[in-house]
Design a protein around this nucleic acid. Structure first.
Length: 567
RNA sequence: UGGGCCGUCGCCAAGCGGUAAGGCCCCGGAUUUUGAUUCCGGUAUGCGGAGGUUCGAAUCCUCCCGGCCCAGCCA
């Protein structure tokens, strides 16, 4: 990955890691992990965690970062997600090398350690139903009460636990629970479940097990077994840390490592939802075309939209790592993309809403090749050939019969404008549909002495983009807008009620520059004066499809409709 | 009103007792064959509030206010 990403201010977690290193803790090593559950696709919030965990490992050579699938709930997980997650992490630019793990790799060990807990009187088999457990747990303000099975002997617990594993009992009939404190003010410490009986085929272990360990029990031990030094997770696990430590403390003779769990706030992006549950609902209920729909905040959706790994990494570095609510404006993400694409994307021209222009004094059959730079500031990116012809298309928005104000610098009836990389033209006549009055064509003239040079004695300040009508390639262009109408999609209670019905606009048969016919899927261009567009995989050989990744900044739009003063 | 956290410019975020970094946005202005980019300049007498300690407080103490998370045999 590139190394010229701007330095970031050091966050509190990196400070802790640095301090630990300074005092020689963990034998001077740093081992982190990114532990997704394979029950959905990765999203921008995961990118934050990936950049943090892999980033810290990279910065502290020879640090390593493990990719570990937290696969303890087979009913919700799927092999499809495992592959997608690996692809996304790689695409983002990170490498777990040989450190690919599954929590299910440790099922045997976990089972063995559970027996240690039982023998030591730290865990017991409970016959309470799920409902009963809930009732016995108490509430936020009232303590819970002990399970009637709480004082079963270790021997009996051991026998029961083995028989749970052997499939003697029905799903849900027993659980293994930690014996902690039913009166704890921290509900997670009120004898949390460690194992449940669930006859489900596991994507990794098949039908070997009918009991599966719970997250709290599994995660800390997995971390310890892998020699993780810093176990980084989001704030909602803060209340689980005492349990994390409790389990590792009881097993300290069996485990060599006691990783430190550190929590940071999760990312919230306005105008979007970042929750696997909600994203899966958008997919399953067809509010979007799939996990990689360009409107989705998933890594795959952003990729298809035209986001680059660099832009996402840069975004993650800029938003920082803290414990305060990380509510980031969507414009911030978009800005990171623009910044990256500005220097990298090749320029070209495309017309979203065509208006035909006939240049009456231009020779009928002439096709004049012109050279246009691929990037205005970087000649190294080369040139391309564009074709000037008698008939061209310009964008409807670039013409007005009468200028709305003195600042308007596009084409106006009777006035001149420059066709980018070509000649200056003058609008001689406006042709309208006799019924609707709609402008359907412009008759213009051109000044043959204005190629690559300014006209004599007058200044033409406007420059508009255009495409030859005869040489143009037709393409579908998909314009995306935010998926939700409100900055906070939860407003009003149900995020589905706030879906933006106009989040996708499909433009058919847009004339685009012929050079674009060679574009490959995933190539991203700047359509000058319009935005950045990426070629979609739905494209066919003769009908390209482009997704608008992000618009260009548009200060003219601000002049036309100024935003409410924000200060 | 049990427990755990969090409150510094519109957004993100430094700061850790010595007198408010930076980024994004925004506002001016310059350059520009993209109203893009780039470049200059501007934007918190103020750190959720009120008291207190101190020569000195965003930083320490007290009280108060606001927000988030937790009652899955999910993660």
């Amino acid at each position: 990955m590139s190394t010229n990403e701007p330095a970031i201010t050091v966050d509190f977690i990196r400070n802790i890691v640095a301090k630990d290193l300074a005092v020689g803790k963990n034998a001077g090593k740093v081992v982190t992990r990114f532990p997704p559950e394979p029950n959905g696709y990765l999203h921008i919030g995961h990118a934050k965690s990936i950049c943090l965990n892999f980033g810290i490992a990279q910065e502290n050579s020879p640090g390593t970062c493990h990719l570990r699938f937290d696969d303890t709930n087979p009913e919700k997980e799927d092999e499809e997600y495992i592959q997608a997650i690996k692809d996304d992490v790689k695409w983002l630019g990170f490498d777990w090398k040989e450190n690919l793990f599954f929590a299910s790799n440790y099922f045997d060990k976990l089972f063995e350690l559970a027996q240690v807990l039982i023998k030591n009187g730290d865990a017991y088999v409970c016959s309470l139903s799920a409902n009963d457990i809930r009732e016995y747990r108490g509430t936020l303000t009232e303590p819970g009460k002990n399970s009637p099975d709480r004082d079963r002997s270790p021997a009996e617990n051991l026998d029961l636990f083995l028989r749970m594993r052997d499939g003697e009992f029905a799903d849900g009939s027993y659980t293994l629970r930690a014996k902690i404190d039913m009166a704890s003010p921290n509900i997670n410490m009120r004898d949390p479940a460690l194992y449940r009986i669930r006859r489900a085929t596991h994507h990794q272990t098949g039908d070997k097990w009918c009991i599966y360990p719970i997250y709290d029990y599994t995660h800390c031990i997995s971390d310890a077994l892998e020699g993780i030094t810093h176990s980084l997770c989001t704030l909602e696990f803060e209340d689980h840390r005492p349990l994390y430590d409790w389990i590792l403390d009881r097993l300290e003779d069996q485990l060599k490592q006691h990783p430190q769990q550190i929590e940071f706030s999760r990312l919230a992006l306005d105008f979007t939802v970042v929750s696997k549950r909600k994203l899966i609902q958008l997919v399953n209920d067809n509010f979007v075309a799939g996990w990689d729909d360009p409107r989705m905040p998933t890594i795959s959706g952003l990729r298809r939209r035209g986001y680059t790994p660099e832009s996402i990494r840069n975004f993650c570095n800029r938003i920082g790592i803290t414990k305060s609510p990380n509510n980031v404006e969507i414009g911030f993400l978009e800005g990171c993309l623009r910044e990256d694409l500005e220097s990298k994307a090749l320029r070209s021209m495309a017309i979203l809403k065509p208006l035909k222009v006939v240049i009456e004094n231009y020779p009928e059959d002439k096709i004049e090749p012109l050279t246009a730079p691929n990037h205005p500031q970087n000649p190294e990116l080369g040139n391309r050939t564009i074709y000037m012809t008698r008939e061209v298309y310009i964008d409807h928005e670039d013409f007005l019969e009468v200028a709305p104000n003195k600042k308007f610098k596009r084409l106006v009836a009777g006035k001149e404008v420059r066709l980018r990389n070509s000649y200056v033209i003058k609008c001689e006549e406006v042709i309208k549909d006799s019924n609707s009055g709609e402008i359907v064509e412009l008759r213009c003239s051109y000044d043959e002495n204005t190629l690559n040079t300014n006209p004599e004695g007058r200044k033409v300040k406007g420059v508009i983009h255009w495409v030859s009508a005869t040489k143009a390639v037709k393409a579908e262009i998909r314009l995306y807008d935010r998926l939700f109408k409100n900055a906070n999609p939860e407003e009003g209670g149900n995020f589905l009620d706030n879906i933006n019905p106009n989040s996708l606009t499909i433009l058919k048969d847009c004339p685009i520059e012929s050079s674009l016919a060679q574009a490959k899927t995933g190539d991203t261009f700047q359509f000058e004066r319009v935005g950045y567009f990426s070629k979609d995989p739905d494209s066919t050989d003769d009908y390209p499809i482009f997704n608008r990744a992000v618009t260009l900044r548009d200060s003219w739009a601000k002049i036309l409709s100024p935003r409410r003063a924000s200060r």
